[in-house]
Design a protein around this nucleic acid. Structure first.
Lengths: 123, 123
DNA sequence: TTGACGCATATCCATATGGGTATATGATTC
DNA sequence: GAATCATATACCCATATGGATATGCGTCAA
């Protein structure tokens, strides 16, 4: 089996920087494909491809307007990501388990000398 | 160019369900590779591979203990994901822009008749 | 009707997977 | 030192990319 399809879920869809960029642009306002092409500075087919992925996971909605297609953001599918990541918030914002982390590193340093780049001691 | 490497950043690393599962397991407590293998029910080399990816993006730290390698969670690299997704929170939790969304759909329905599967009218 | 515009798709390519099996490397025990 | 345990790597494969170019197709203007 290869890697999961980018259309498998929002996690895979937003793993691509360009797609996050598109969502960021759409967060401001509804935009046509050519609008996005102009701002992204990449060829149109590529933008269409990314938009297709975003559409398939439901992150954008489309609306026909003449010969243009207006894309609109739909953040709903991002909620699962938010919910998942959220549970780890304490692991970076608080000093929980910071103690044994330091202890473990000390113990390691005792045995072998390595550079750990351990900076930023939060008060 | 192909898809970005899974080791490119946390976004790509956690796009894989199995890796999120591993992080979830490590969230509870430090674990050895064989501990993870037992709980995940997959072959050991695969777990080691996933752990390598997680290590490369800094999501886990390792500590040698005899012939075992204890892996520990490090949520830090998840913060960028949290920060990014967070900016979209209103797009799913509030009813902002819900109005023109409905209007747009109505307008579309006027012109062409399609099944939109539009359910769940919030409160 | 003809032509230009706006987008989506079809191909083609190089690359990086996730999964499996076999094997190398290290540490521990006998 | 030999045997064993715990992990990491090396390969193999099928698959799905992101990017680029060429082309199809519906819409609007002349």
């Amino acid at each position: 089996m290869a890697r999961a399809a980018t259309t498998a879920d929002a996690f895979n869809a937003v793993a691509e920087p360009r797609r996050r960029q598109i969502l960021d642009l759409l967060a401001g306002r509804e935009q046509s494909v050519s609008d996005l092409v102009a701002q992204l500075g990449v060829v149109q087919p590529l933008v269409s491809k990314h938009l297709r992925v975003l559409r398939e996971v439901g992150l954008v909605d489309v609306r026909d307007e003449g010969r243009q297609r207006m894309y609109r953001l739909n953040g709903q599918p991002l909620k699962p990501i938010f919910d998942w990541v959220r549970t780890y918030e304490q692991s970076w914002s608080q000093r929980f388990s910071r103690l044994d982390e330091v202890l473990a590193e000390l113990k390691e340093t005792e045995l072998r000398e390595e550079e750990e780049g351990n900076d930023g001691d939060d008060e």
